[in-house]
Design a binder for these strands. Sequence first.
DNA 1: TCCATGTTTCAATGATAGTCGAAACATGGA
DNA 2: TCCATGTTTCGACTATCATTGAAACATGGA
Lengths: 112, 112
Amino acid sequence: METKDAVIALSALAQASRLAVFRTLVQAGPAGLPAGKVSELTGIPPSSLSFHLKELSHAGLAAARQDGRFVIYTAQFEAMNDLVVYLTENCCGGNPCTPVCSPVCSTEKEPS
Amino acid sequence: METKDAVIALSALAQASRLAVFRTLVQAGPAGLPAGKVSELTGIPPSSLSFHLKELSHAGLAAARQDGRFVIYTAQFEAMNDLVVYLTENCCGGNPCTPVCSPVCSTEKEPS
DNA sequence: TCCATGTTTCAATGATAGTCGAAACATGGA
DNA sequence: TCCATGTTTCGACTATCATTGAAACATGGA
């Protein structure tokens, strides 16, 4: 991941409405949610929500797929994980420190 | 961590100059760096840098301590970790998924 | 006390982003 | 084909942020 991509991803999350949307999608898991449901859950009007979902998609943090009249959005866990790795890259100059496990999910539907 | 705090932290990182500063501090480890050294390493002019360091400090992602005429800045690894946890909270609705270890350091100087 | 060095504040400027109603668009079913 | 439903685009407004030189401030040493 490059700086530019990280800034785009972080900018996408650095906004109350979008952060709420992203977390809602994270909680929904790989199955995702239709845009209307996200609007309902977050209280964000459809037009605003569409703007924000576009931003999250552009940042690679969400993905859309068509399902009949619905557009299902899903969180992209790998992008999230890449971002975290980037932020802590070469931590402490490569010297040993104390890594911690963070619950960053994979995109797989079932645990392996 | 609350939404407001997360947005503040993410906003702090969602900016090319500040992201570079934060990563520089992360790489410096708990020992930190004086402001002037950060300016030198990142190429950001002192006045701009001061503005950004203030933002990072306000967000809890960096901390300042006085050392003679120098002000030493350090990355706050715990805040970083809290942020990651917040982003993935209640991931997949609590259903089992595949957690991944991310190298988020603690603030300790030596590994335990 | 006076100076050199390191850091922060100030002020002005230009640019970017969030919001949401109304209207347009897309899809599937009757 | 026509309609109902779900989603996106458009447009206009307001607000907030990044940048940087110059000046002010703080600290330690002579």
